[in-house]
Design a protein around this nucleic acid. Structure first.
Lengths: 341, 341
DNA sequence: GTGAAAGCGCTAACAG
DNA sequence: CTGTTAGCGCTTTCAC
């Protein structure tokens, strides 16, 4: 472990001063072509690497962004982080990762750490348990750019990147209609979460658009789980006029539905169609393969980073005040569970 | 955006000097109880937060570790990162995340960034395409602690945390034997990768231990994919004495095998047993659910961080030279595809 | 117990 | 075109 090479070392080596070496290394104007080359070659030879800490202290920029996700163990977020990091890397930024575990206390601690680390900007997906948002507003007050992804809160007036849940639900429902299913049910999620509410709305809108009456008894309110999907099917099939298809609010719920339908020896997709939401990796491997709606996770990460970077670079500009919301298109991922034709 | 509060601000407010404030904030000895309390209260009131950049520049410590993974999109690594970040957070460290995309060029760039950022230590899983390791050795030369997880290279003499692939394969094969299967095949992976080689060895060892002769024709060398699993089954079933069970090197291969076996109308697990490796999330949702070997991903992340932290704190100690290798126990995750009894 | 002063490594003013 | 000086915010000697 040899002593770390600093600008001063290079300066000494070449009988120059630190300032000149710094200028040469950064290709600032005011250095002769000769010295610049000389300095850069020497730096290379001595294996010099700029100290980002010192650079940051002096310049006020860290080229680091903080990212808060509920958990890296959730596929969805791993995928978004993949998009974020790829794009960040491309633009010379590093990613500091923090998990909220769905708890506001962790969120707060993460934000503390990020601010203390002087990150240039923050990307965050709000924890499920969070109901009070002052810690996010503090980021704003500190003048640090912030962008929400996936889990946003419109009332905070903070830029965000989300997907169009309403439209995704609409597409899913429309697909079932076009496949000739006559009574289409919906297994809904908790309605205090906007994404689930939007999906219910999208479902209703599609039915209405095709002249089909929305029947309350065909909407089952579950809690987003495999068990909930099973219960929903049990209930729905017990109706005097049972449905012949279901759009589930999310893939695990759809999976539960599929399992229950199979247990009841009802043929999928011939006698019963199923569509989920999220395009989980298991979708294509179960039998029958599960139709779903893709949320463009990687793209979401990329867009979120790009938006954040714009905010970082426009800082102080009037622009920053402009509320921005990027809404991504959900994509159809239809498979056996709903393809009757 | 009000001006950021510094130690100097607090000192001015209290007619003290920065040195005293710093001591008081950090509970260093040499400050009266009174001033300490006063300073801490004032800091709280003024909403002071220590600047990590300045702290790092002065102290030489960042409390940041760098983590290199192939991709955050791969479940396995998301899970390990979850373990790493949880443990790091608990110990006051932050995680800087970098994806290698399986390419050595990215690895090098990530290492550059980490060293330049003065991370206190580095955790890495080697990229598949990497065959030359000088960039990793440079970390060592720089005196920065490094620990490999999952994908390690024993010849580099660098501490690592891995799972016992040999034993996992042994357990899987033994289980099939105990379930009464008589001719057990193995779909192997590329043998230049140590993990796959170890699994083949474990398979052979289990057979031998139970007095069963290892037959070369029952070992199919595939390339780790669904398609490869299907091909393997086609080949194995065409033998004059076909197997009645298979241990696949990894879950996607096992999945391909299951699909092919089902297509051939052979009953699983009655007429044919299947065990995979990795305990992928789809395992429990396919039909029949897939038996597998769990790799303790979260635990791996936690152990890796703990080991790294020890190295960071023992730095300069003789200890550091001691080669350390933590081998985690693979866990049985047996399900329908192999449970005949 | 507190203050004064120096310095971590870098860059930006200002001179020359 | 290059050097001198100062300072980012913090901690740590060394005095008093």
């Amino acid at each position: 472990m040899n002593h770390k090479v600093t600008i001063a070392d290079i300066a000494r080596e070449l009988n120059l001063t630190g300032a000149t070496v710094s200028r040469a290394l950064n290709n600032r104007k005011g250095t002769s072509e000769d010295t610049r080359r000389l300095v850069q070659d020497t730096a290379e030879r001595m294996n010099y690497r700029r100290d980002r800490i010192a650079y940051s202290l002096r310049s006020g920029r860290t080229n680091i962004i903080g990212v808060i996700i509920p958990s890296a163990e959730i596929n969805f977020f791993g995928s978004v982080v993949h998009g974020i990091e790829s794009m960040a890397n491309q633009h010379g930024y590093s990613v500091l990762l923090y998990q909220s575990n769905e708890q506001p206390e962790y969120e707060k601690k993460g934000i503390e750490t990020f601010l203390s680390s002087r990150v240039d900007g923050i990307l965050a997906s709000i924890a499920k348990e969070t109901t009070e948002f002052s810690h996010y507003l503090e980021i704003k007050e500190r003048g640090v750019p912030l962008v929400f992804f996936d889990r946003a809160n419109d009332s905070l007036n903070i830029p965000s990147v989300v997907i169009d849940d309403y439209k995704g639900a609409y597409i899913a429902t429309e697909h079932l209609i076009r496949q000739g299913y006559k009574r289409i049910a919906h297994i809904a999620g908790q309605q205090h979460l906007k994404i689930f509410k939007d999906r219910l709305e999208g479902y209703k809108a599609a039915l209405t658009a095709y002249g089909i009456t929305v029947e309350d008894e065909l909407v089952y309110f579950g809690n987003v789980s495999i068990a909930s999907g099973r219960q929903a099917i049990q209930h729905l099939l017990s109706l005097s006029k049972p449905p012949d298809a279901v759009f589930a609010v999310e893939d695990f719920t759809a999976l539960g539905a599929v399992k229950e339908i199979k247990d009841k020896r009802i043929e999928i997709p011939e006698a019963f169609g199923v569509v989920g939401f999220a395009n989980e990796s298991f979708d294509e491997h179960i039998t029958p393969s599960l139709s779903s709606i893709d949320q463009q996770t990687v793209q979401m990460g990329k867009e979120a980073f790009k938006l954040l970077m714009e905010l970082i670079e426009d800082k102080g500009d009037v622009h920053v005040q402009k509320r921005t919301k990027i809404v991504l298109e959900p994509l159809a991922a239809f498979r056996q569970s709903s393809m009757r034709r």
